[in-house]
Write a protein that binds this DNA or RNA. Structure first.
Length: 792
RNA sequence: GCCGGGGUGGCGGAACUGGUCAGACGCGCCCGACUUAAAAUCGGGUGCCUUCGGGCAUGCGGGUUCGAGUCCCGCCCCCGGCACCA
């Protein structure tokens, strides 16, 4: 028997699989149905200059186990890989170290692909896509144009999050506590013209999960998304500014407090302020609007200025002074509110600061007071009654408001997909015609961020003829947020070489939605929400036949170092290379799966990997012993049942419980049992099964041992099936309790009646000792488990 | 504050629907075998206390039950989301 030398066998089997195209999965012929299919996907990596870290190894190994499991259970399994290749880190590295972002990115891709191949993951490399490849971003641009045509992508001036460090706009979803999620810099508010995707058009639908049968999302992810979308039901009410003959709408969730309104407040950015407000109010608005939202919220005292105008309360004709104050946000509701200081904490605070009147209109019993004809109504009933009344007057209607904002996706940086838009003095905003796609990202000499897009300085590229009128025009110089790329990359995988369309509908509808998506929960309100938005919109465009991109979603825990998530921004990375070199890919894979439950964070330590290696060596030695010593047609024996139990446990854990560490424990138990007697009549069956079951975790050693046992091509062998009759036992260990405490245990036959079991229990000397002659009050029998004797 | 998740040996964790003295499997540690020695390997031990009968143990306090890590109530702590969103 040779020694277990992973450095010998792993490259060998990787070559065998590649030559056999073991994990390349062609699309089915049209019309091919009645076939199990599985689309296994993990979030694609960002090819940083460094390499994979143990967090990736964990994530992709988990996906790999699932992939092998479903392949060997007869499914056609799609398991692709690609690169989220655009983005700031490569661009910043290029600025820092010289070179071109493309070169840096592509060099990283080469390295990471090699790392992945060394780990032996079952990936269909024919389907590899990279977001920076013109063959990919051509279709990103094409999809943008479809959104643009339907007004789901639009341009407007708005206060946006500006990262002074990255010199670009950041989407709300990636501003955390007022800081840039990527680089940590303090975010500023700037009023800029930006491109937006109209995610709010799908606000309601994004709160619902239209998952296919068997689909399931974690409750906490849905909660996070629903919090983020933040739906509020209420009413929109028109207040009139008589002297200007203008109506100003407000949104409120408390129409029942309408009689308690004593003043009126607008956001600093409200157009009314700029148009009609007093100079003092305009001055205030100018300063307030420029401040960060964080600072606005943090200040102790509320601030504001009277605009010089009054709004009329439609319900009682009262004239309310209109103030401008920064506690009212322009991009929520209508940007203006009716202020009810008695029943709203913030309005109350403002009223105290500026000594404005407070009027209570709901008493402790929740009944309206001082509210005209609605006095005496319960607040809840008053809500609808007042809105009904307003509606009849043409002064209000029920309304729903969302916290969710549209997704700003234009970036003032270089390394991204150009937005295919042309500005013409004569024709305005003109989309680049489909036949002119892709708009190639040109090389530039200088991509230093300067607050405007680097592409804007590339005169040659910038100036084009207008596609409509042929006149002089300029290109949009902003590029797209990389989250646009990742909002559809998973669809491109199913049809990666299509050059007629981003994807063909038939093949997409065959494979999708993704059966199982694995990735970090940090993308709950970003990537995962954007992808759902994309799919719903594409479904409405008739481009695909489903409403959700990901049927089942799983969030792996972080691999931490020093308590914080392993990530390139933190710089606390441990890569797999040294470990693979020292212990082999199988040991690394097995170890990282064995570390604990997949959804929990785990502090990285390699102190336990030795145990995993010991286990593999023991398996190696034992299987060779079995191959030599055990009979080839042995009878079932004591090992047989243990083997079937292990099949059942491993299969159930992987398929149903999605738990990947306990199968390894079960396999270790089986191997221990096998070690008792490697020459046993059923040792060969046990050994073959153990090798077969460990294959998803440690495919190289499994393949080698499978061969040692005289077989071939384990990767395509059917997954073992537990034999139900073999699982049945003839006897079981009866536990006998007295008053709930275990006092004796012994083997009994499974076919005994309850009375017989009780009789046996009572016959036990140890039980008798604890009974002490006391009266038996009651006996409880749990079939196949225990007898509990209750006394005293 | 509101919403969601979680607290089990020295450590990672197991116990899947209330039912095998809770602690599988692994790490670590201790003892032993092999060895001139070490490594590797193999075998054994390892929750706490104990008068060796047993007692106590799953964040804390109560409850339901013949029986609770598992269910219910209250509290403490940790992690995550939302938070001037009208």
């Amino acid at each position: 028997m040779d020694r277990y030398e992973p450095e010998q066998i792993e490259p060998k089997w990787q070559r065998v699989w590649a030559d056999a195209r073991a994990f390349n999965v062609p699309n089915p012929e049209p019309g091919a149905e009645d076939e199990k299919r599985w689309y296994q996907l993990e979030m694609l990596p960002y090819p940083s200059a460094k390499s994979l870290h143990m967090g990736h190894v964990f994530n992709y190994t988990m996906g790999d186990v699932v992939t092998h499991y479903h392949r060997r259970n007869g499914a056609r399994v799609l398991r692709p890989m690609g690169w989220d290749a655009f983005g700031l880190p490569a661009e910043n590295a290029a600025i820092r170290e010289g070179g071109h972002p493309r070169d840096i990115t592509e060099a990283s891709i080469v390295l990471i692909r090699e790392q992945m191949q060394r780990l032996g993951w079952a990936i269909d490399w024919d389907r590899e896509v990279s977001s920076h490849d013109p063959r990919f971003y051509k279709w990103t641009q094409w999809l943008f144009l479809r959104f643009f045509e339907r007004d789901l992508a639009y341009r407007r001036a708005a206060p946006v999050n500006w990262c002074p460090n990255d010199q670009t706009v950041v989407a709300n979803e990636y501003v955390v506590d007022g800081h840039c999620e990527r680089c940590g810099a303090l975010i500023e508010l700037r009023n800029m013209t930006q491109w937006f995707f109209k995610t709010t058009a799908y606000a309601d639908e994004l709160r619902e999960y239209e998952l296919p049968p068997g689909g399931e999302w974690p409750e906490r992810t849905k909660t996070i998304q629903r919090n983020w979308i933040g739906r509020s039901e209420g009413a929109e009410i028109l207040f009139r500014v008589d002297e200007l003959d203008r109506d100003i709408p407000v949104f409120t969730t408390r129409p029942d407090t309408l009689f308690g309104a004593t003043f009126f407040v607008m956001a600093p950015e409200h157009p009314f302020v700029d148009e009609y407000a007093s100079e003092a109010a305009k001055e205030y608005a100018k300063h307030a609007g420029a401040r960060r939202a964080e600072d606005r919220a943090a200040e102790e005292e509320k601030t504001g200025v009277f605009t010089g105008h009054y709004a009329t309360n439609p319900v009682n004709g009262e004239k309310l002074p209109i103030w401008v104050a920064d506690y009212v946000l322009m991009d929520y509701g209508t940007g203006a509110i009716m202020a009810v200081p008695a029943h709203d904490e913030r309005d109350g605070e403002f009223a105290r600061t500026f000594d404005l009147p407070v009027r209570t209109v709901i008493n402790e019993d929740g009944v309206l007071v001082d509210s005209g004809e609605f006095t005496g109504t319960l607040a809840n009933e008053a809500k609808t009654a007042i809105v009904d009344w307003l509606h009849k007057q043409g002064r209000g209607a029920p309304a729903v408001s969302f916290r969710l904002r549209d997704w700003s996706f234009s970036r003032q940086r270089y390394w991204g997909a150009p937005i295919p838009i042309i500005y013409c003095d004569a024709c305005g905003v003109v989309p680049v015609p489909d036949e002119d796609l892709p708009v190639l990202l040109p090389d530039v000499d200088d991509y230093l961020p300067k607050g405007k897009a680097p592409l804007a300085s590339n005169e040659e590229w910038l100036h084009v003829d207008c596609p409509k009128c042929g006149g002089p025009a300029t290109r949009e110089a902003d590029t797209m947020d990389t989250f646009v790329d990742s909002s559809w990359y998973f669809i491109r995988y199913v049809d990666p070489t299509n050059d007629e369309a981003p994807f063909g509908r038939d093949v997409v509808d065959y494979w999708m939605p993704v059966s199982q998506y694995i990735g970090g929960i940090d993308h709950a309100t970003g990537h995962l929400l954007y992808s759902r938005f994309f799919v719903k919109a594409l479904n409405d465009m008739g481009m695909l036949g489903f409403r959700e991109p990901f049927a089942r979603l799983y969030h792996q825990g972080w691999i931490t170092m020093g308590g914080t998530k392993m990530s390139k921004t933190k710089g606390n990375l441990v890569g797999p290379d040294e470990l693979v070199e020292e212990y082999g890919a199988d040991a690394v894979r097995l170890y990282i799966m064995f570390m604990g439950p997949g959804d929990q964070d785990k502090e990285w330590s390699d102190s336990g990997i030795e145990g995993t290696v010991r286990f593999l060596r023991r398996l190696w030695r034992l299987v060779h012993e079995v191959a030599e010593q055990a009979p080839t047609d042995g009878e079932p024996g004591p090992l047989t049942r243990k083997t079937h139990q292990t099949i059942a446990r491993v299969s159930d854990d992987i398929a149903r419980r999605f738990q990947f560490h306990t199968p390894i424990s079960a396999l270790m138990e089986l191997v221990h049992a096998l070690a008792e007697d490697p020459a046993a009549p059923d040792a060969r069956f046990a050994a073959e099964t153990a090798v077969s079951l460990i294959q998803p975790y440690a495919p190289h050693i499994a393949e080698e041992l499978w061969q040692a046992l005289g077989h071939e091509r384990l990767w395509e062998q059917p997954w073992p099936v537990a034999d139900a009759t073999a699982l049945e036992e003839e006897t079981f260990e009866l536990v006998v309790q007295v008053n709930g405490k275990v006092r004796d245990r012994f083997e009994v036959g499974v076919d005994l009646s309850e009375d017989e079991l009780v009789a046996l229990a009572l016959a036990s000397e140890r039980v008798q000792a604890h009974l002490n002659g006391a009266q038996v009050r009651k006996t409880i029998v749990v079939p196949r488990k225990l007898v509990n004797i209750v006394v005293g």
